[in-house]
Design a protein around this nucleic acid. Structure first.
Lengths: 337, 337
DNA sequence: CTGAAAGCGCTTACAG
DNA sequence: CTGAAAGCGCTTACAG
């Protein structure tokens, strides 16, 4: 059976379909009695306005497109939760698309968003930035980047304060007495990596600790990349006693590599992560890490987008502070280290 | 600047907009030269057909709605990844909605899906089933339930084989020599809980082990519910030596409670989970669990939906086998147990 | 092979 | 306060 349209309601209410439209949209032009009667009929017949028809004339869809590398990435999932939650509050829907970090797919995603005339787009943790810049210049669709590569002047963004986070993490290690502190970064050299590394460097400088290039290794942001990076550090003539990792996933891999060598965390080596993913508190040992307020960041991204849509003045680049969470993966170095 | 429409392309190509429509949709009616010329112009001007306008006449949207309790739940995230991935293959988009297990919100979600005229709906792990039954009867929109409450005769579903999973998990413990085996279920009494419990019972029966009601406790599917349930089991005069948990999250809480008592897993108590979430391999200790092929299940749900949409005959209730993954949270019981 | 016309379900000036 | 009319951007019989 076909869904009923505004005309069906009009017929039942013995008014014109224009009147129905007005009554249902809460126009003050309509007499309260008529409006009430129409709304009752619409309710009873289970009428649902067609979003497509409405958007065709209003040229807005109340839909925003969200691109994530993978929704199965816990960081992305938390961010999307925040976005969807906030969207729901404002009667917006979220169209989700995974890019899988495949450029070809990223292009298709953008096409799909354009065809669906999303009102705005949020891109989370993408390494591809250029494609969105192009899109923006062609479509006028506001875009908000979350923890993304180089937000340009055209782009609004929500970013964690990577520098301060890296600084806090590394200072925590310095404070525990570590002097040989390594960094396992992300081999793709994205902005967050550069900035977290920057925080690490600053902390070394502040403590008058020398920066040793051999104490920098690179993973891929996941455990399987973190493990070999840690192995290479362990093979050093004078291995580090503490490692600040680009993120929690990398830290998990690092811990795995350390255990594989028969060493213990934190007794032999301290580990700090970044993100504070849900399971950071359940890892072995529970992870000291820099917490990103992921849901809040998602919500903030959506609200920024909505402000952009309403034409309100917006702070173009929002920086959110992280928070060091100390758990059991860090301790003072051993005496003889 | 406004997006160009089919009319703009028609003007540029000096043809009617009908011809443009046909050329772009690959109609064989159009001469190859004309079609090529039109496509080239459309390409150059960055034309994107309006999905809304198209759907208004075709009365399909190539969109499916997905309801999850929370996208931040790792199980849901993996499932959604599978759905989105498969949807992408078939040029469908996914509208995502979190219900947060709030009935009021679940209703709004359904309304939004109706207004957007989604072609079909997938509901994952919802405790509310009735609302979707109602919707189905009103809208003809096919619905596929994934690991959901009571798939009725109107509903198609993809389910993990909970009974076999519970059976395997418990038999594994029996095989290790355990005789005092407990079960921590989900207090909401959903179908998967009932079925996993059923598998547990069968395994006890097969091993001629008595079923003891005091060996059944209830959590809430999350660590914070699993921990107190485990505590109550530990307070028993003769506590169990092994526990099969409703899911990995519950198992995490159980392990936490065990550690809090100064006991060890698996030396003192063996623990089996269910799901094999990503971090099950990184927990302390790595978790023995029943793996659900979450992505495949998501993909299967989408493909079932597409078959329903195409009117093809479909197997209404698909049961997917789980797989016992043995890690380090289980071992033989201590001698004196 | 191509075009003119109708229509999908809405919103919104324009009249009254 | 209400209605008739136009139009959003498409697709698709119907003619030719």
């Amino acid at each position: 059976m076909k869904r009923s349209s505004i005309k069906d309601i009009a017929r039942l209410a013995r008014v014109s379909h224009s009147t129905v439209s007005r009554a249902l949209s809460g126009s003050t032009l309509i007499s309260p009695e008529t409006a009430g009667r129409i709304r009752k009929i619409a309710e009873e017949s289970g009428y649902r306005p067609s979003a497509a028809a409405r958007s065709l004339v209003t040229s807005r869809t109340a839909t925003i497109g969200v691109v994530v590398t993978s929704i199965a990435d816990p960081f992305a999932a938390e961010v999307v939760l925040g976005i969807e939650d906030a969207a729901n509050d404002h009667d917006y829907s979220v169209i989700l698309a995974n890019s899988n970090a495949q450029p070809e797919r990223e292009v298709r995603v953008v096409r799909a968003f354009e065809e669906r005339r999303v009102d705005g787009i949020i891109v989370t943790s993408s390494r591809v930035g250029a494609i969105y810049v192009d899109m923006l210049s062609q479509t006028q669709v506001p875009i908000v980047l979350l923890n993304n590569q180089h937000p340009s002047e055209f782009m609004h963004s929500v970013m964690i304060d990577n520098v301060a986070g890296g600084l806090d993490a590394t200072r925590h290690l310095v404070g525990l007495g570590h002097r040989r502190i390594a960094y396992i970064g992300d081999r793709f050299g994205c902005q967050s990596d550069t900035e977290r590394f920057g925080g690490y460097r600053s902390a070394l400088d502040l403590a008058y600790l020398p920066f040793l290039p051999e104490y920098v290794a690179h993973g891929d942001g996941k455990p399987d990349g973190g493990a070999p990076a840690m192995e290479s550090l362990l093979s050093l003539p004078s291995p580090p006693t503490a490692v600040f990792c680009y993120n929690d996933m990398t830290a998990l891999g690092a811990i795995r590599a350390i255990s594989a060598r028969g060493l213990r965390v934190p007794a032999d080596i301290s580990i700090v992560g970044f993100d504070d993913l849900f399971f950071a508190q359940y890892s072995a040992p529970p992870l000291t890490t820099v917490r990103q307020p992921m849901r809040d960041m998602g919500r903030l991204a959506l609200e920024t987008l909505l402000q952009l849509l309403s034409g309100a003045a917006t702070q173009p680049n929002i920086k959110v502070p992280g928070e060091l969470i100390v758990r059991q993966s860090t301790s003072a170095p051993m005496e003889n280290s």
